[in-house]
Design a binder for these strands. Structure first.
Lengths: 213, 213
DNA sequence: GAATCTACTTAACACTGTTAATAATTCCAA
DNA sequence: TTGGAATTATTAACAGTGTTAAGTAGATTC
């Protein structure tokens, strides 16, 4: 009964501690291990206490999903150093890819799963609930506009082109993470190591885009 | 107590009836409504009976996922009539898109969700468990090879190019189905109706690919 | 000191997938 | 025809899930 022991410790920042516990379970044991009761167990509180700080399980998942966007955002910071816009564009793609592979659970939460943002639709003021996602998209969009200033894909509508690039890279990540590439390539005698398919397909995509200059 | 009434009816093809019930619930009320107990309720059998015909819930989902590939396969049949390979290629994409929109729950099961094929990895002879998916990919791959014979994207590796095309179209479908396009486009004053974003982005993609001739 | 308010807990509801044990039925050989 | 085995379906239960209602200590305020 760790409850009495816990009471001797500080009781502040409980909302943050709940989120930390959720993040711990989530990163360590994946989505299915992250239940309200298990989170409660980690922070040594009753499960119902969590409902005093988060309205839903979805609310927690949404907070985690924001954490994910923070992580992606920080890994985007260094891209500002790259002055050549097309080089920045390419490196942005590689960064996105690396994030998806390194933090696949978060990627799942942010871009693949339906859960954490489906109830936002019901919400009246849900327009800015995916603001982090929109910001990430803007980073891409702005980079593409910069590329166009230097003559790249200049006959393209920048927004539709951004959607296209995002779709391709997301499709690559999503299909790869769920093992579909492995399945498809198996027995096809593709002379690429299974782990390198994603990378090869992406670099092939960059080559292809390069030709649109 | 419908059990005694049911006993007077034929008891054959129970495995199929389970699948039909699952399909009914799945198409009518979505994924979360498709529980073992609800399926059992529909066919008027005890929940545990289902385990005599399917080892898992995943096993049922996998069967449903195969049904989905059957549906996709039949909607691909008419494509054979199109002799021009590049026209066939484009129409194949539109068919894929339409399938994703018209049967979004099935699309989810076949290409987005992790569930129905994750345990296949553990299986020793899991190599051909996603055969339907591989077949679909082959249709694309063959069409692309035909296109190359006519001079389209001839400097491309056909397999990597197929992966690229699939990724793009899947990315478009996946992001669109989960409402991410809507989110991103909202407030960006894109002069396209929200429902038409997917279509526009796809046609834009086709135009772009056309230029690789 | 009594009332109120806050933070938290216990108990419970209605589900979920799944398994063990049991009953009913069918089949097949002696 | 009868008895045992095998098949088929059932009930009961386990361990888990998200979530809510009701109750209880402890601090705060009047």
């Amino acid at each position: 009964m760790g409850i009495t022991e816990r009471k001797n410790r500080d009781k502040q920042d409980l909302k943050q501690r709940i989120l930390d516990a959720a993040k711990l379970l989530f990163t360590k044991h994946g989505y299915e291990a992250t239940s309200i009761r298990k989170i409660a167990n980690v922070i040594e509180f009753s499960p119902t206490t969590i409902y005093l700080y988060y309205r839903d399980k979805n609310d927690i998942l949404y907070a985690l999903h924001q954490e994910g966007f923070k992580m992606l955002g920080t890994s985007f910071i260094d891209l500002g150093k790259i002055s050549n816009p097309f080089e920045r564009f390419k490196e942005m793609g590689r960064t996105y890819l690396k994030f998806a592979l390194d933090h696949s659970d978060f990627y799942e939460l942010m871009f693949i799963m339906k859960e954490p943002i489906q109830w936002l639709d019901e919400d009246a003021c849900a327009s800015d609930k995916w603001q982090e996602g929109i910001n990430a998209f803007d980073s891409l969009h702005n980079t593409i506009i910069d590329c166009q200033k230097e003559g790249y894909f200049k006959d393209q509508d920048s927004k539709l082109f951004s959607l296209f690039v995002w779709s391709t890279v997301h499709g690559l990540c999503s299909l790869s993470l769920h093992g579909h590439f492995e399945q498809v390539v198996k027995g096809k005698k593709l002379d690429i190591h299974p782990d390198k398919i994603l990378e090869s397909a992406f670099e092939n995509f960059l080559d292809l885009i390069d030709r649109l200059k």
